[in-house]
Simulated assay, not measured.
Amino acid sequence: MGGALMTLATFLKHVPNNQYVEFAAYQLSGEAQQWWQEECRLLQLQNADIPWDVFQMAFYKKYFPESAREAKKMELMQLKQGSLSITDYTSRFEELCRFSRVCQGAPKTYESWKCIKYQRSLKDNIMTAVATLEIRIFSDLMNKARVIEEYTGTLMATRGRGRTRSRESRNEQPADNHAEFMATIANLTNTMEANTVVTLQAVQRLGQSAGNVNGNSEGNTNDNA
C-alpha cells in the first residue's frame, strides 16, 4: 500500500482528473482498504464522487501527520546534490517530492516547480550548464544532468592522467639532480683528500728543510768554538 501511494503522483500522469480517487483507492490494501471503505460510508459517497483534495486530507490525517509532512518538506527544501551522484540525488529528490503537497497535485501544476527546485540544488558546474536550457520537463532535465555529469567525470579523469604524467616527469628531474649532486660531492671529497695529501707532503718537506737548517747551524757554532 505505502509504496503504491508514495508513487501516486507519477501514476496520476496517466489518469483522468475525475478518476484520481478511484485509482488511489484501488491501490489500497489490507487495513488501509478497510479504513477507506469506512470513510466512504461516513461520507456517504462513492469514490467517483469524492473530490481528490478530500481523499488526500483524509489519508494524510490518518497515515501521515502534519509534523512528519513538515519535516519532509524542510528536508526537501534543504536538499543539495553535494557529493551525491546524479542517480542518488535524483532518487532522494523524488522520494522527498512524494511527501510534498505541491507534488501531490495535478502533474501539470508541479512539473515546472519540480524542475526549478531540482536544478537549483545541483552542483554548481552542472546547474550552470543546464540553467541556460530552461528545461521544464523533469525527465529531460534529469537525463541532461546525467549526461553533463558523465562528461565532467570523463574530463576530470583525462586531466588527472595528464597531471599524473606531469608529476612523474617532475619526479624524474629531482632524481637526476640528486645524482648530479652526489657526484659533485664525491668529486669535491676526492679533491679535498688530494689537497690534504699534498698539504701534508708540503708540511713534511718543510719540516725536513727546517731540520737540515738547524743541523747546519749547530755544526757551524761548534766549529767556531
Rank of each mutant, 00 (worst) to 15 (best):
T189W: 02
E70Q: 14
N17K: 04
N143G: 01
F59W: 12
Y89W: 08
D176Q: 15
E31N: 13
V15C: 10
R205G: 02
C115R: 06
Y110M: 04
A129H: 14
E150Y: 00
Q33W: 00
A131C: 04
R136N: 06
R165M: 03
V54C: 10
K114W: 05
M6S: 00
D88M: 02
L76E: 08
E193F: 01
I185V: 14
S29E: 15
M156W: 00
R69Q: 12
G30A: 06
S112T: 13
H178I: 01
E70V: 14
A175D: 05
T158R: 04
F138G: 11
N17P: 01
P107T: 02
A9V: 05
A131P: 10
A25E: 03
Q173W: 04
L12M: 14
Q33E: 07
V147A: 04
T184R: 11
N222A: 04
L28G: 10
K61G: 10
R159E: 15
C103V: 01
L12Q: 04
Q34D: 15
S217N: 12
Y63F: 07
E172S: 09
E95K: 08
R205N: 09
E38D: 10
G153C: 06
R159D: 13
S67V: 00
G153R: 08
R205H: 11
N220Q: 11
G82W: 01
T10A: 10
Y89P: 01
K117L: 14
L84H: 07
R41A: 12
K62E: 13
I50W: 02
M77E: 02
A179I: 07
L206H: 09
G207E: 11
K62I: 07
L42V: 03
Q56L: 14
A24F: 05
V197G: 09
Q173I: 05
E66V: 09
E150C: 07
E38W: 10
N224S: 01
F59S: 11
W113K: 00
E95Q: 09
P16Y: 06
R170V: 01
D223M: 00
A186S: 11
A194L: 14
E111Y: 01
Q44K: 13
Y63I: 00
M1C: 02
E75A: 15
R159L: 12
N224T: 12
I148W: 09
I185R: 10
T196F: 07
V102A: 08
T152P: 04
D223S: 13
V147L: 07
A194R: 12
Q27W: 00
Q44S: 15
K114T: 03
L96E: 03
E193N: 15
N18M: 09
T132M: 10
Y26L: 14
N125V: 11
P16L: 09
T184V: 00
Q46M: 06
R120P: 03
E22W: 00
T128H: 08
L28E: 04
P51K: 08
Q34S: 15
K117P: 08
N171Q: 12
A32Q: 05
N187L: 05
V54P: 03
A32R: 07
G219K: 06
S169C: 11
A145G: 05
Q34F: 05
V198W: 09
M127V: 04
E94C: 12
C115K: 00
T189H: 13
A210H: 14
N125T: 09
T158S: 14
W36M: 15
T184F: 08
C115E: 13
